[in-house]
Nucleic acid binder design. Sequence first.
DNA 1: CGACAACTTGACGGGCGTCAACCGGAGTGG
DNA 2: CCACTCCGGTTGACGCCCGTCAAGTTGTCG
Lengths: 245, 245
Amino acid sequence: MIRSEEGLRPLVAKLKRLGTVTADDAAAIERLPHTVKTLRHGDFISKQGDEPAQCTLVLEGIASRDRVSSTGARQISGFYISGDLIDLNAVLVGCAHDNIQVFGSPTVARIPADAIAALIAERPAIARLLWIDTLVDASIAREWTLNLGRRDARMRLLHLICELALRQENAGLGSREEVTLPLTQEQVSDALGLTSVHVNRTIQSLRADTSLERDGRTIRIKNWQQLTRQADFDDAYLRTRRGLV
Amino acid sequence: MIRSEEGLRPLVAKLKRLGTVTADDAAAIERLPHTVKTLRHGDFISKQGDEPAQCTLVLEGIASRDRVSSTGARQISGFYISGDLIDLNAVLVGCAHDNIQVFGSPTVARIPADAIAALIAERPAIARLLWIDTLVDASIAREWTLNLGRRDARMRLLHLICELALRQENAGLGSREEVTLPLTQEQVSDALGLTSVHVNRTIQSLRADTSLERDGRTIRIKNWQQLTRQADFDDAYLRTRRGLV
DNA sequence: CGACAACTTGACGGGCGTCAACCGGAGTGG
DNA sequence: CCACTCCGGTTGACGCCCGTCAAGTTGTCG
């Protein structure tokens, strides 16, 4: 599943899922200056308050976005996988409000912010698709709000599994039937607004569940329909119908 | 505080807070076709699954964005006040994933989506500022995940008060020292991921609080510094430094 | 084989939910 | 001018989900 030789193609693939990308625009994206890098578990891509001069595109593996409360509790507010472009804030706002941390040993591409700024300025069609991408990202954050505010531990966990399974499939990383998450239970708990102790107990309670199987850190989903029903998962917030243009 | 004669000026004012708006661009915005309307408490601007043909700009009053879980529990994921443009999704994605409901009797302007699409296509500077606005909106949603996931009822409530007080002040609706919310305790509870019973008790526990006073639905903030400390409120997620251009 | 991180388990407590009753003010209609 | 209604706020009793604390256990990597 190593695909670092693909350059920035995962970004093109993602934008194609959001709308039409001309061959010319695709070439312009792939031509962006960038450096490919393999990070180590726990590395930070950027930290709250940074003013990063570059954006980061996840090529393989997983990254998370989090904030920390005054009491020191961490809340993860989203995960990023292959094709996801992080820190567009760097281009438009110039300041990061979250920590971006990676898990496992992902490979990423770093792209100078001004190169992206130039791309946006010259190619409105790409700008539009990147904008749509940020809208989807916001939609995910709102779904997490619902997850944290109104669902119990079991549903939160199942919902997260559904989201990541489907996003991985959409990103061309295999089928939704099998997900492997390089996340510790503590990181899962930070995403779900729970403690790691309670996540552990919730995971164990899923043994009796007939819609999925767990084998270490890979989850085999045996009954997608049943799982989404249990998780109150409706994929509408992830997909987007094609725009008007 | 009635200002419906101002047309779309609140939107111009907001974009000016995010960056530079030329007089020409400002005029183009104010020239957008629109109809001003006063809504009634509880009206829906749009509902989940709609494909609205127009965007809505809040001129005065307040609107909320929510989703509903399979168990029927509502979670509000954000509030919108004067100057906030809702349903940009209609322009870019074509589909709403949330309900937008109003409280009190706000006045809004409805703008045809294709007029906004044309504006975006012709005026990249405005597009850029609207894009930044959606990034701030996303940042707020992420702050809410931290609020729901990692703060207790008291802090959640104080944090919401801080956010709305500051946003009202930023929007030119008076000082942060005094906020009037046309929200019932049930609506507050839907925003905080709590029950209205518990919100009621939490509000009462604030009587002993020295940093604010309550008089019906208006809150007088006597000590902003102290309040923000108690609420773990850092306004960075609301403001944005000017972009690079 | 020692060190360290992640996972597991148990006991206990508290914050918040649930259920249910009651209060109080604003509107409405006779 | 007074009943009636209704919505929102208030209060109490009770219980559960989940947090906290603390002690293992497992696994992995040197």
